[in-house]
Design a protein around this nucleic acid. Sequence first.
DNA 1: AAAAACAACGCAAACGTTTGATTAATTTTG
DNA 2: CAAAATTAATCAAACGTTTGCGTTGTTTTT
Lengths: 338, 338
Amino acid sequence: MQSKPTTIKEIARILNISPSSVSRGLHDHPSIGAVTREKIKQLAKSLNYEPNNAAILFQKGKTYTIGVILPELSEHFFSIAISAIEDEAIKKNYTVIFAQSHDNYEQEVKLVEKMKNQRVDGLLVSISKDTSKFDHFEKLNSFNIPVVFFDRIPPFKNVHYVACSLESATIKAVNYLLKKGHRSIGMINGPNTLYASEERKEGYMQAINFNRLKFDPTLVLNCDLTEQGTIEAAEQFLNHKRKPTAIVAFNDYVALFLIKYFKKLNVIHDFDIVSYANLPIISYLDNSPVASVEQYPYLQGQKAANILLDLIHSPNSEKQAYYNTIVESDLIVNEVKE
Amino acid sequence: MQSKPTTIKEIARILNISPSSVSRGLHDHPSIGAVTREKIKQLAKSLNYEPNNAAILFQKGKTYTIGVILPELSEHFFSIAISAIEDEAIKKNYTVIFAQSHDNYEQEVKLVEKMKNQRVDGLLVSISKDTSKFDHFEKLNSFNIPVVFFDRIPPFKNVHYVACSLESATIKAVNYLLKKGHRSIGMINGPNTLYASEERKEGYMQAINFNRLKFDPTLVLNCDLTEQGTIEAAEQFLNHKRKPTAIVAFNDYVALFLIKYFKKLNVIHDFDIVSYANLPIISYLDNSPVASVEQYPYLQGQKAANILLDLIHSPNSEKQAYYNTIVESDLIVNEVKE
DNA sequence: AAAAACAACGCAAACGTTTGATTAATTTTG
DNA sequence: CAAAATTAATCAAACGTTTGCGTTGTTTTT
């Protein structure tokens, strides 16, 4: 049983026909007669013939493989997204290979290189936090490997991408809080270097302006997203001259730290918290956020994968148009607790 | 820029030497002179030469790829495990391809087939819930593709596997509860068909016996792991003649349902709950389990990957010994809440 | 001065499959 | 019945790289 796998050549030799006929027979090519075809198929089956993929890929110059590069697979958002990607890929008979950049620019560059060497048919990327140069992706053009960015996308339009509009989501969130009667709304934002921070702030401002309120810049704080940073931001809010009654947290972790801290100080009931969903069971918390911005990772992954497969199958002449897909995010209001 | 990628042949043609020399030159083969070598390398660089992986793989009959098949990537446990697998693989310059069985036996069979066709160098598998036949893995033997199972492993020893001993973990858990003074301890177990259920029950019984207590079979309930099923089990405990004061839950979901239900009934403080960790932030819950069985998914993934890479590199003569690795699980006692 | 060693490179086969062009045999058509 | 069309199969090249074995010259050893 440790013999070499059966090859087309062997089948051909045994049947005393040419390898090309065997190949064609197995593929139901019309130029092979029914009798020969059946003989071929039978022998193939009885010999446990399995096509050598490596050879086929090499021959066809196609790998039927798509690569996925993302920062951290164990983050809930990404694990859902890549799960969707795999689901879509397998439907079209593609295989998924992936690698994690661990939010490291150099690693990302290496991985892009590696994916290129693997000759993936296409690449899905969610860029790392400290990526600000994008040359490493341009090389892929000359290899005709299409790239679709998702969720964490570069700050320009002339690429394919799928992402959530956190701006409009934030508008919804702030509007919701305003409608609930809040007049001083704080925001714990991420570092200014992040595009995601920009979007959140922009949405916040838009909502405030739209409701003809005055924007108070001291109510939007930057935070390094650690527990300590969150506590510092919370402190500032507690001592604020217009102490906010609601807080928009950058993500569920920040919300978690915030809730923990406020509960310790016994002031948790003074605040309504809204967050951006990235932890599964946060709604099970006792004082969970009153609402969450849902970013539909499964849908994003699905769309990104389908766009990529589209690009792979479309002639490379159609290079003019870029898919810029925005997945609408929704504000999920948590059920009122009994 | 849409020209075909540079090949060794082309470099050879330009330099008027043979392809074999180019290949050797690029690999620093001693039989190529320093001058020629440098000329080759320079031209290669300036022409943006990238080795065609498909060709190399084909010619070497190795793919430097390991396949991973698991039930559901978006489950926290698996996302951590595969994250570890990728980390290990990339250290050894291997690529990871993966696919999800979605806990479906037929799908699993198909995927094994597919992985085989992809000629992965090795396979890591966490089997699906409704897998009870294992022939599909045996085929891999004839292709010399080693398999290492992890976490969800087949019920026999003559395979390579890495898993957690849930039995010893359960002993620890029950012992802990006994030491805390509990004398009636309930267990919400999974379906009897699961090996994991068997292990938990076995551990429970061992701990009880070891402490010279009497085992009461009505305190170990089977459950379909849904919320409804959990509630039904909870009801039984509440009406039990020896109403338990502590409950061992099959996993964090069950614990979650249980906590929710008990809180609704306002009896949450009557119970100490122990669970098997599979949700990240459960310890942030207000009435979180007093202890959790940690199964170290990262470590499991890491070990499984390393064993597989070992098997790949070791001569296939060493087929006698099987790696049966048990990762000790620990009981993590949650901090006392202030 | 002959033999041996070595350095630097080329030849050609091989890996397994696909595919355009070709051939040979048979059948259909005008 | 000759010419055209159809059927069934073969040939050979190609995909890009690696590698065992030869083949040159040149240098070193006896």
